[in-house]
Design a protein around this nucleic acid. Structure first.
Lengths: 318, 318
DNA sequence: CCCGGTTCTGCTCAGATGAGCAATGATATC
DNA sequence: GATATCATTGCTCATCTGAGCAGAACCGGG
């Protein structure tokens, strides 16, 4: 397009989008036919000079969602807009809200819902509305929180989700990681624990988040792992953890011995499940999000615009 | 509007603006009538959830221009968009471009055009196209540049503008500020200098920029004033200079003695002129821009979005 | 100079949309 | 519980707008 036409298209866009003039009126002002004005506006849009943004905490980015679905084979992708957010926390809250919305609209409603624990899941539980589902049995799928902090975050997440659905919660009263393999095996042999794990393996749907592999990991906060252990895992290729198990970019367990001492469903159970919702948001989680999506560890991804774009760029430059 | 309606309006906006669906199609998806969808979209726009931005170096902000005209009594206001600019320099270049555009489209074409000098005016001269006007006599309205730098920036600005208009330039071969009042008076008594000043006083139109009162002022760079002198002026209330003369926020000369030693047309000449175009851009120039606009020192203001918004906010909270 | 190909322009027509209006539903007040 | 008031809904109609098409203008190569 010629230079003067480009300038005209900008003048037309100003009058059209900012002054709400009709193409006819713009034609009179710029001494053009209204068809020419229409074409100029179309070219302004085609050249990307017109940027339309939906600024709202609940806004999603449907085109990105579609591209994600197409390029990854996810059955569904929910991408929240990051327009106008100032902090990572705000973005994660938006994502949690979107996950809560997704759960609320889920059909058929799962009879048994397996969940992990963590800041993200807790956030999701808070965003759910009372009565979001008519009765759901929530079951924890990995060992619970905190050796040294306010206990009960994991339990309260599950209980809150269940309570708000007028359903019941089945807790997994176990540490996340045992020191000794034998202790873990003894634990799993216990009738009640085995029952919970069996229930978890048979859940119709899973919701979980994932943590990045760094000193801020929830497993470090909770006292199950030291920063040194994390550094070791990173050295072996770990990008983050999924239901307490550290994986590398290819979705493989990086430390089988540690994995054996970890309580909860196996990674492969997530892989085989028909509905697995991963809720992953924040600039530090791009790597683990990629590992999760690339290796089929979820069928539905709830994330933020920046993370989604990072995933898409990876696809473009393989 | 109810909460669920707000959420629906966001969903509708996503489908309408990002997915290019018709209101009818959206109605089917959201189980609404197409009229309801139309109303939701209207409310989304009314609530400011839809942000439309024209991203282009030549884009202007017509609504802001209109509000500026209405609230200040300017005969014209040109406001360039700051969408997508990364540096103050880029913003100033856009503003200079807009000023050049404004001059090019000016009707009637002024016979004599009085100009000041400085980075901004130089920028304007560069953005003008060859043949922008069919013959204009350009005359300098204040004493020229630089005791210690590449001389001729002031002269070259005037010459370039005149040359590109196939016209002539009349230079004011004088320092900006004299040390002694007597020297300045002797200078002005000179036949040729007096003639240039007379021509400057009778120009049909003026174009000038303004400088902020700080250590980065062009008058400091050029060696006419020291940083200490500027600090003194600031202490007396100076917010910046116009054609080399420092004024306070009420448009008053802050140092009459210094003003007497300054060569060029008086501030009042600008006030009385029927067409005075001020080109002022950059985050450091909000105060001087306000002084210029509030006190009738220009009839046309060319500026950037941020400066314009600062002016409007002043108006809102008097 | 002519001619095939390409781009640009003005137009018709159908689909999309907003303004305005009457009917309906909700709410507050007595 | 009756009723005045206000907001909401579904609709008609006029206007706005984009797709598609035919003719005009432009261009480069014979």
């Amino acid at each position: 397009m010629s230079d003067t036409d480009e300038l005209l298209s900008i003048r037309a866009a100003e009058l059209y989008y900012e002054e709400n003039q009709t193409q006819d009126e713009i034609g009179v002002i710029l001494r053009l036919t209204r068809w020419k004005v229409g074409r100029l506006l179309a070219s302004a849009r085609a050249n990307g000079f017109i940027r339309i943004e939906i600024v709202h905490p609940r806004a999603r980015r449907l085109p990105i969602e579609r591209r994600l679905r197409e390029s990854t084979g996810l059955t569904d992708a929910i991408v929240v807009s990051s327009a106008g957010v100032s902090s990572d926390a705000e973005l994660q809250s938006r994502t949690a809200q979107a996950a809560a919305d997704y759960l609320t609209n889920l059909r058929p409603i799962p009879h048994t819902l397996g969940i992990s624990w963590g800041r993200t899941l807790h956030d999701v539980s808070l965003h759910l509305k009372q009565g979001w589902a008519p009765g759901v049995n929530v079951v924890q799928i990995n060992g619970g929180v905190s050796l040294n902090q306010r206990t009960g975050t994991a339990a309260s997440t599950a209980v809150t989700i269940a309570h708000k659905a007028d359903g019941s919660a089945t807790l997994l009263p176990s540490p996340a990681i045992f020191e000794r393999l034998e202790t873990k095996q003894a634990m799993e042999a216990d009738r009640t624990i085995a029952g919970v794990l069996a229930l978890a393996r048979n859940a119709q749907a899973y919701v979980y988040s994932a943590g990045q592999a760094d000193a801020n990991s929830a497993l470090v906060d909770s006292g199950y792992l030291t920063v040194e252990q994390i550094n070791d895992l990173v050295a072996k290729g770990a990008v983050g953890d999924v239901v307490g198990r550290y994986i590398d970019r290819h979705g493989r367990i990086v430390d089988p011995e540690l994995n054996e001492r970890t309580v909860g469903i196996q990674i492969d159970q997530l892989r085989r499940a028909p509905l697995t919702i991963a809720v992953i948001s924040g600039n530090t989680k791009h790597a683990i999000a990629r590992a999760v999506v690339r290796n089929g560890l979820c069928t539905v991804l709830v994330t933020d615009e920046d993370t989604a774009n990072a995933l898409l760029q990876e696809k473009d430059t393989p």
